[in-house]
């Protein structure tokens, strides 16, 4: 708590120039031009939000689905082996995932993008040049990164659903699937929500893997195929070579915003988990 306060204070002091010059409009101005000394954080906030949102959109259903499979359907041995592999995935350093993104994911995405454009090009989401790097790739790599969290935590909370409740539902003549939907998921919901928030926190702050595949272009495009930029990435990329105090302060201001968002997400996760524990 105290550490967080000191950190916040430090970030605030070291970004004072930016707040003085641009005020709140820093948050919704979309021009980032170190040459003309015009700074707006919106492209980065947008990039972080979209790539993280995309990651959750993919990882939550898959992760919860995997957890249900592991707990309810898979034979015990298979479940244990799968859970082990998934936990290993969580231990892969993000720079390695980023490399995998560059060598595997980017070519694949580049290959399927023309298909997406042809099939779904009427949606603004899937228009433009197939670069391979961009929001979609960043979202994919992030989803891979948070998938283990969601699966592992969801599995734990599903395992904690009392057998007596599942048996009560089965004894009423429910199928296994109905039991999952009506008993297990409602019981596990706060825990799963906590897992989602933890995953979101992880995705928001992820730097390395995203930097390697997002395209690092400060722009706001509706298309998921277009390159973008994220808050963490711009800080990592530009901090060392910031040309002026204004530039430096603006990067730190982005850091402050990122910290604020992360704290809120974290608090939400804790609240969810607390709710679960109180009930159990």
């Amino acid at each position: 708590m105290a550490v967080t306060a000191v950190l916040t204070w430090q970030l605030a002091v070291n970004s004072a120039l930016t707040w003085k010059q641009f005020g709140w409009s820093f948050l919704w101005s979309s021009t980032w031009d170190p040459v003309r000394e015009v700074y707006g954080a919106l492209p980065f906030i947008y990039g972080t939000a979209v790539s993280s949102g995309l990651a959750l959109l993919l990882a939550v259903p898959i992760g919860v689905g995997c957890a249900i499979f592991l707990v309810e359907l898979a034979p015990k041995r298979v479940a244990e082996i799968c859970a082990f592999i998934i936990e290993l995935l969580a231990a892969v350093p993000s720079v390695i995932l980023g490399l995998m993104g560059i060598f595997v994911l980017v070519p694949v995405v580049r290959a399927v993008e023309p298909g997406l454009t042809a099939g779904l090009g009427w949606l603004p989401l899937f228009q433009g040049e197939p670069y391979g790097v961009g929001m979609l790739t960043a979202g994919l790599i992030l989803s891979l990164m948070v998938l283990p969290y969601i699966t592992v935590i969801s599995r734990e909370v599903l395992l904690a659903v009392p057998r007596s409740l599942k048996e009560a539902m089965l004894a009423l003549g429910a199928t296994r699937w109905e039991t999952v939907m009506k008993v297990s998921l409602p019981y596990a919901r706060p825990g799963i929500a906590g897992a989602v928030f933890l995953a979101l926190g992880r995705a928001l702050g992820e730097t390395m893997a995203v930097t390697m595949v997002i395209g690092n272009t400060p722009q706001i495009k509706a298309s998921l195929l277009a390159p973008g930029y994220s808050m963490a990435s711009v800080i990592a990329n530009e901090l060392a070579e910031a040309s002026s105090d204004e530039h430096l302060h603006s990067l730190i201001a982005i850091g402050l915003v990122l910290l604020g968002i992360s704290l809120v997400v974290n608090a939400a996760a804790r609240a969810m988990i607390g709710l679960l524990e109180r009930r159990a």
């Binding site: 004894a171 009423l172 003549g173």
Partner: peptide, 27 residues
């Protein structure tokens, strides 16, 4: 079969996410 042969368990186990009404209506 289980709709024909119901069961009551040793420890009361109403569904915690459901109201009294919904518990009875579940089946």
């Amino acid at each position: 079969l289980r709709r024909q042969v119901g069961m009551v368990f040793q420890r009361p186990n109403p569904f915690p996410s459901m109201s009294i009404f919904d518990n009875v209506a579940a089946g």
